[in-house]
Design a protein around this nucleic acid. Sequence first.
DNA 1: GCCAACGTTGGC
DNA 2: GCCAACGTTGGC
Length: 141
Amino acid sequence: MGKQYWLMKSEPDAYSWDDLVRDGSGIWDGVRNHTAKQNMQAMKVGDEALFYHSNIGKECVGIMRIVETAFPDPTADAGSPWVVVRVEPVRPLAHPVSLKAIKADPRLADMELIRQSRLSVAPVRAAEWQHILKRSEQPED
DNA sequence: GCCAACGTTGGC
DNA sequence: GCCAACGTTGGC
């Protein structure tokens, strides 16, 4: 299987894109949902993910690369099933792509982000990925 | 095994 | 601040 694409949410007041850029790399910890966990376990080195700011901003702001596959979440109790992956920033989007714009775009409205709004780690189809990147080339409205 | 109650996420 | 969606817990 070739490269796969993902979307990962973080509340920017807890951990933002700028925090990840500052750190150079980070582990995606704190995920406590089984579907999200399974998605992280399916990630391969080289897969790419959108960094989405939930709650504040509600927009995709950057592209990350998976640099280490799933391993136990050090913030979880020993023996728990929770995992993390390690990510690195690739580049910021020239212009953020907002949830509003995604919902309004028929080519994006079927994204997992929309279909299952509470899922914090979700797959993104290749066509959706390409379309979001294209949209990020120019500002909204 | 069902389901009501409760907690959390996240958009509005 | 509210609420919809969804997950978890615990009584039965």
